[in-house]
Amino acid sequence: MKDPVFVIHGVAQRNREEFTSVVSSLSAAAGVDMVPVHWGDLGAREQFIDAALPTQRSDGETLRDAPGSEPPALAPVFTQVRDEAHQLAHVEAAVRDGLDAQDDDGDEDGDGGLRDLGGGGHHLDPDRIIEYVRTAWADTEWLCRTDDARLLTETGRALAHALLDEAAGDWDDAYAGLRGAGADNESRLRSLVRRRLTDLDRVAGAAVQAVGARLNHAVRSRFGPGTTRFLGDVLVYQRHQAAVHARVRQVIDEVDPDLGRGPDRPVRIAAHSLGGVIAVDMATADTPLWTDSLVTFGSQAAFFHVCDPRGGQLAPYGGGAPVHLPASLRNWTNLWEPLDVLAFAASKVFRLHDGTAPVDVPVNHRASNGMWTHSAYWDLPHVASVIGDVMRQDRSAPLC
């Protein structure tokens, strides 16, 4: 009779009874005896996480930043890359198209047939307006950062229509009241273009911030808790590896204290997420947990080692040849789900002691799992099937 498979959970698993139930279901689906290894009580404290999360301001000061700072990138339509010629080309074309209404014979736009404003023969000059737009463009906060053709075109069209409406007005300071073409008139037109462009800029900024705030809230609500718990447990594990490893060793000793102590009695382990990192760290330590078969799913061992070498018997990864694993880790199968952003491949970074690569196995995405798939592995039949197949293989030869 084979020894049981020890199952090590990953991040954010605080409930021992719940984890025991999950392992029991996985054991039945895989057809192998399993023992849960619960270490979640040693993980990060979650009850005060909300205190560290930023909240949306409610004082109305959402558009302007501190002097010299960059506006927040709340939507992909606004970027830090500026191609003013490209931007103004769209705006200019739309302004010219919009101002063509003043020369139309009809009155489709409701501009009152603005071919002659007040009998003075003074038209809204597109060239002059474009000149004023170019002068004021760099002072916008939002519009000068977008390369979205539709937004730029609509900005130009809205500016043209606003100027035509102003020109058709009969109030005292309306542009229609400026019969001549003197310096004072041009100064008022320049000021009018700048004001309307600023108004449009503020509308664009307010709109994208409203959408961005909702998107930010949705992302935080749906993905934030899982990501936050992941980071919290990773930080705790990095500082308290010894305590977590001792817990794993304790559970194994309760089954048989000889298990994992040498090549003649290796353990079999299935591990999720950070549990896979724990299993690899222990199997490759200077005093290793001798491991015959390891199945990881949604795990980050390769990612962690590339970013920060794990030590023990592992050499750093230099970007060329893979890192050779010691004989104390005989076989490694690594499962990853394509939408799981916390799952990483192992075969490019590592080689087993016999020169073969760990086996990376993709897990098909199920639409019912939604977008956050990091916790979905436990209920996937394919995962249980792979674990069962790997753990039932007969490896009677010693590890070294």
Rank of each mutant, 00 (worst) to 15 (best):
E18C: 04
H217D: 15
P326T: 08
T140L: 00
D258V: 08
A206K: 01
F344Y: 15
C400R: 15
C144V: 14
V37C: 06
M371Y: 13
W171S: 14
A52W: 09
A315G: 07
R265Q: 13
S299H: 07
Q87K: 02
C307M: 13
A28E: 12
E337G: 06
P76F: 06
F344E: 10
R196S: 00
A181P: 00
G311Q: 02
R395K: 11
P309E: 08
V255K: 11
G110I: 05
L231M: 13
D165H: 09
S368D: 14
A218N: 09
L329Q: 07
M391E: 09
I387L: 14
A181N: 13
V248L: 06
R57L: 11
A51P: 00
F303T: 02
A149K: 11
L200E: 00
L53C: 08
A207T: 13
V37A: 08
R115I: 05
L117S: 10
H382P: 00
G156K: 01
Q87G: 01
A75H: 14
G298E: 09
C307I: 08
D139G: 13
T373Q: 10
D233I: 05
G232C: 07
E18F: 12
I130R: 02
G262N: 15
D389L: 09
A283H: 03
T153L: 01
D170N: 12
R115P: 00
G156P: 02
P358Y: 10
R128F: 04
R249E: 14
G113D: 06
V267I: 12
D111H: 11
A246G: 15
I269E: 03
V255R: 15
V255Q: 13
L178P: 00
F19I: 07
A181V: 13
W171C: 10
P288D: 02
G205E: 01
G232M: 05
L164Y: 04
E92Q: 11
H38E: 12
A160Y: 03
V133T: 06
S24A: 14
G226Y: 11
I278V: 15
D147F: 01
T228Y: 12
D116G: 04
G205V: 01
V234R: 13
E17Q: 14
A93E: 11
H245K: 06
G98P: 05
V323L: 02
T287P: 00
H305A: 04
P316E: 03
D201H: 02
F48V: 14
I8F: 06
G40S: 12
Y377N: 08
S27F: 02
A85V: 11
S58K: 12
N185Y: 03
L294M: 07
D394A: 15
D105S: 11
P288Y: 05
V359Y: 01
L200A: 02
S27Q: 02
A75S: 14
G311V: 08
P126I: 08
L114V: 08
D253R: 13
G355R: 12
V267D: 06
F304Q: 15
L342V: 14
D105M: 09
E108F: 10
V359Q: 14
D125V: 08
H122Q: 12
E337A: 11
G320L: 02
V306Q: 12
A28M: 03
G43H: 09
I252K: 10
H324A: 14
T284P: 03
T291V: 06
L380S: 04
L117T: 09
R249C: 07
V22E: 10
D165G: 12
N334H: 03
R268F: 00
A346C: 05
T140M: 01
D354N: 15
R202A: 10
E84G: 07
